[in-house]
C-alpha cells in the first residue's frame, strides 16, 4: 500500500461539520446532549476545541476585509499525522506508533500508560485523554487515527466519506499533493494570493494535507511547527545514565574490595585530659592540645 494522505481543501469547505459527526459516529465517540453543557467558543466552532471524545473540529475564523465583507476561513483541526512524529518518539510504551504502510500515526489504547508525553511533544496541540484526574488511573489517549480500520479495508476515512462539497479527499499522498497544488494554483489565479499548500514538508511531511485559501494565521496553524529541543536532550539522557550507572557500580565495587579486611582499634576520649586512648592497650593515641587551640 502506498503512503496515504487526507487532503483538506479549505476553499471548498462549507463548514457543515458533517465530518465531525461522521468521525464521532464511526469511532463511537459520544457528545454531551444536556442543555448548555458545551462551552461556547464565541464562533460557530463547536465544540470549541478537541477533547477526549472529539478527534476532529472544523475551526472558524473571521477577518474583516479592507473594503467590505469578511474572509471567513474554515480549518480542519485534528492530527496532522507527521512523518517525523514527535509523539511517537516520546511515547514510552509504544502505544503511539506509525502505521508503516500508510504513514498515519495511530495508537494502541491497551498500551497507553497515560503519561501524556505525546501532548507535550505535539507541535499542533492535538492528543487528548480519557479519565484525566488526580489519581492518574486509566488515563488513555485519544486522537485521529485516520480511521485506519477503514483504510485497511480499502475505505476512505469516515470524515472523507461524508464530505458533500468535496473539501476532503483521500488517496495516495503523491496524488493528494498534486491535487492540492493544482487547487492552490487555481486559487491564486482567482486572486487569493495567500493560498498555499500546508503539510508538504512540515515535520518531515504531513499525512493531513491542507489547501489554505487565506493566510495561515486564520487557520491557527504554526508556520514552522517544531517540537521542544529538550525532547532531543531527553533522548541522550538514558544512555548517559546507563554508562554512569555501570561506572558507579564499578567504582563502588573497587572501593568495596579495597576496604575488605579493614580494621580499626576501638577508641575512647578522656575528656578531662583531652586524650584519645586505645581501649585495648590503654595507650594515648593522640593528645588534643586545647591550649594551642585544638578542638
Amino acid at each position: 500500500m502506498a503512503e496515504k494522505a487526507i487532503m483538506f481543501d479549505s476553499s471548498r469547505c462549507s463548514a457543515c461539520k458533517g465530518c465531525q459527526v461522521a468521525c464521532k459516529t464511526w469511532n463511537l465517540l459520544p457528545s454531551p446532549i444536556e442543555l448548555n453543557s458545551q462551552k461556547w467558543s464565541g464562533t460557530l466552532q463547536n465544540p470549541p476545541d478537541l477533547d477526549e471524545n472529539t478527534r476532529l473540529v472544523i475551526s472558524f475564523d473571521e477577518k474583516p476585509r479592507e473594503k467590505y465583507g469578511v474572509d471567513w476561513a474554515f480549518g480542519r483541526r485534528g492530527c496532522s499525522h507527521c512523518t517525523d512524529a514527535p509523539c511517537v518518539q516520546v511515547c514510552p510504551s509504544g502505544c503511539m506508533h506509525k502505521d508503516e504502510e500508510t504513514g498515519f500515526v495511530i495508537f494502541d489504547t491497551d498500551l497507553c500508560t497515560g503519561c501524556q508525553y505525546c501532548h507535550m511533544a505535539c507541535p499542533f496541540d492535538v492528543p487528548r485523554y480519557h479519565n484525566v484526574g488526580l489519581s492518574g488511573y486509566n488515563i488513555t489517549v485519544n486522537k485521529c487515527t485516520a480511521c485506519i480500520d477503514r483504510v485497511r479495508n480499502d475505505r476512505a476515512p469516515a470524515c472523507v466519506s461524508t464530505c458533500q462539497p468535496g473539501a476532503l479527499m483521500f488517496g495516495d499522498r503523491d496524488e493528494m499533493l498534486k491535487i492540492a497544488h493544482e487547487r492552490v494554483d487555481l486559487l491564486k489565479e482567482k486572486g487569493f494570493e495567500a493560498a498555499r499548500v500546508y503539510g508538504e514538508n512540515e515535520m518531515g511531511g504531513l499525512h493531513t494535507l491542507r489547501v489554505l485559501k487565506y493566510p495561515i494565521e486564520q487557520y491557527g496553524l504554526p508556520e514552522n511547527p517544531q517540537t521542544s529541543p529538550l525532547l532531543g536532550a531527553m533522548g541522550w539522557m538514558k544512555p548517559i545514565l546507563g554508562v554512569g550507572a555501570v561506572a558507579l557500580v564499578g567504582g563502588l565495587g573497587i572501593s568495596f574490595l579495597t576496604g575488605l579486611g579493614y580494621h580499626r582499634d576501638e577508641m575512647r576520649y578522656d575528656e578531662v585530659n583531652h586524650d584519645i586512648i586505645d581501649v585495648d592497650t590503654g595507650e594515648t593515641i593522640r593528645h588534643i592540645d586545647k591550649e594551642a587551640g585544638e578542638r
Binding site: 521542544s228 536532550a233 531527553m234 545514565l241 563502588l252
Partner: peptide, 27 residues
C-alpha cells in the same frame, strides 16, 4: 506543552542525579 517539557527535563535530569547520589549514600 513547553512548561511540561521543561518540567519533564528537570524530572529526568534530577532522577539521574539522584540515582548517583542515592547509590553513594546507600553504599
Amino acid at each position: 506543552p513547553g512548561t511540561i517539557a521543561v518540567m519533564r527535563f528537570i524530572h529526568d535530569l534530577f532522577f539521574m542525579v539522584l540515582v548517583v547520589f542515592v547509590a553513594a549514600h546507600f553504599y
